[in-house]
Design a protein around this nucleic acid. Structure first.
Lengths: 282, 282
DNA sequence: AAGTGGTCTAGACCACTCT
DNA sequence: GAGTGGTCTAGACCACTTG
């Protein structure tokens, strides 16, 4: 490859070598220009160029994905990570900064850096954009159904499964002051959620995504939503206690875990008479 | 105040003094610990503590607001800004990084840093989240009305005006393949948009926000949207060519310029039969 | 007091753009 | 080649949390 020894490839991250453990000298005579840069490639043949901090980011992400640190736990300090990966604290910092901006990690001054979690947060429902016109959010959950079935083609496709694969379907209501506001249908890959039952869902306090983290090791890290207006059919009208044909917000959400892998499809019907969907544009 | 001379206050930014112009020595004997930090206050009596880079950010924002650099133009290089403000390049970099993350500035390697603009972009409508189910976006505009009126209380309040103040109201359609998809009502403060006429709006190619920047010096930098589902009334049904009572997406947008000042209220009705509102959650 | 993240600086070199 | 932003390092000190 190259005459210059390198710790990290210029294209993709070296997955295993956490080079130069404790005891080694701190890369003398090579400061300023980083080892990764010194290779000086970035010509034809690859994704061209990956800076060191991005490779570090990939390594940290891999550890998250591999379950080395669990949701809510602290990851090693910046200095520890710098020693472990054989880079400067500043480079680790830049990697962690980006991951904090993406809500994968949470920094707390004086305490450490923690794996982001959907549970035990101030904001209970991180992905829920529903807001009441007046007052503050306070939602009760009512589980309607939880069953296993074979994936219909349309749903399987979005979850990158084969039609007919095992899958879990959950239906539930969210209520505000006793009135139903959201009707959710949720589809999950069966292989990732073995042992998910009505009881487990009912026992758990807090959002489903907290349960998924704690019990199944599945972290939802981002999601895409497609929003439409549609008229309530008979079933939705009955459950949401609105007239047949009443306008409802349809919110179709595809959620992803590490590696951009889709692991949940959700279709919510929102009654937006005294609530609205809030969005911020930048 | 303090025995130690400081270039920037610990609480709020010093607005005028762009300290130590050219020629001055580069802050010898005070590296490592910054001047701002050396003051060492941050106790009772204020917003507690504002790091240097944030004060720099405020100064750059003030220059943007004051029109020193216009939309699409380059701002001075990082080294120039560092010299101008009497700080290191790294501190300017951190300030600019944040402003780039907020879409106030756009960095282009090798070329410079530019003031973000709604005009002449790849993405024509930066704030529009409407997506076609199939194919790619291609929208025609049709201006329906543009008139001056006295602000109704409800609208005035959101724009922080007094009821009865002069205001401009615009109504327009967006069409895809000849079919109406969006009906927008737009309200603007009259004092900021003197001389805005039907002709000006029709002449201008590109999004309204581009026109607002170029002709009136008003930059929309962020917005909040409230989304609901509602049934089409007679007027909306006629204009959007849908049946009376058809479900529509109502998108109420409040847009802000520098200093979190609201400068536009917009109410859009979206026909979401072959389009949807796209959102990303993190 | 020790450990963590947060800020600031200075200097080196790399990648990209334009002349 | 000169100028711009992009990456990486090293070191100092500040702010915050915990023992």
């Amino acid at each position: 490859m190259s005459a210059v020894p390198s710790r990290f490839s210029t294209t993709k991250a070296a997955t295993e070598r956490e080079v130069r453990g404790a005891g080694g000298a701190a890369n003398p005579g090579n400061q300023g220009a980083s080892a990764g840069q010194a290779v000086g490639l970035s010509h034809a043949g690859g994704p061209s160029f990956s800076p060191l901090y991005r490779q570090i980011k990939d390594l940290i992400t891999a550890s998250l994905q591999g379950g080395e640190w669990k949701a809510g736990e602290a990851i090693p300090s910046e200095l520890d990570l710098a020693a472990r990966f054989g880079v400067s604290q500043g480079t680790v910092r830049k990697a962690v900064d980006e991951m904090a901006a993406e809500n994968l990690l949470v920094r707390r001054q004086g305490k450490g850096t923690f794996v982001a979690t959907h549970a035990e947060q101030k904001v209970q429902y991180r992905f829920l954009r529903l807001m009441p016109d007046e007052g503050s959010q306070s939602l009760e959950r009512q589980l309607l159904d939880c069953k296993r079935l074979r994936a219909p083609a349309a749903i399987a496709k979005q979850l990158q499964l084969r039609a007919g694969d095992q899958m879990v379907e959950v239906r539930r209501l969210l209520k505000a002051q006793g009135r139903p506001v959201v009707l959710d249908d949720i589809w999950l890959p069966g292989n990732l959620f073995k042992g998910l039952t009505t009881e487990r869902l009912n026992q758990y306090r807090g959002p489903f995504y907290g349960l998924f983290e704690a019990e199944f090791g599945v972290h939802m890290i981002r999601a895409q939503e497609k929003i439409r207006a549609l008229a309530a059919d008979a079933e939705a009208a009955a459950l949401l206690q609105v007239p047949l044909g009443a306008p409802l917000l349809s919110v179709e959400r595809l959620s992803f875990t590490y590696g951009d892998k889709p692991v949940e499809l959700r279709r919510g019907l929102y009654h937006t008479e005294s609530h609205f969907y809030r969005n911020e544009l930048n």
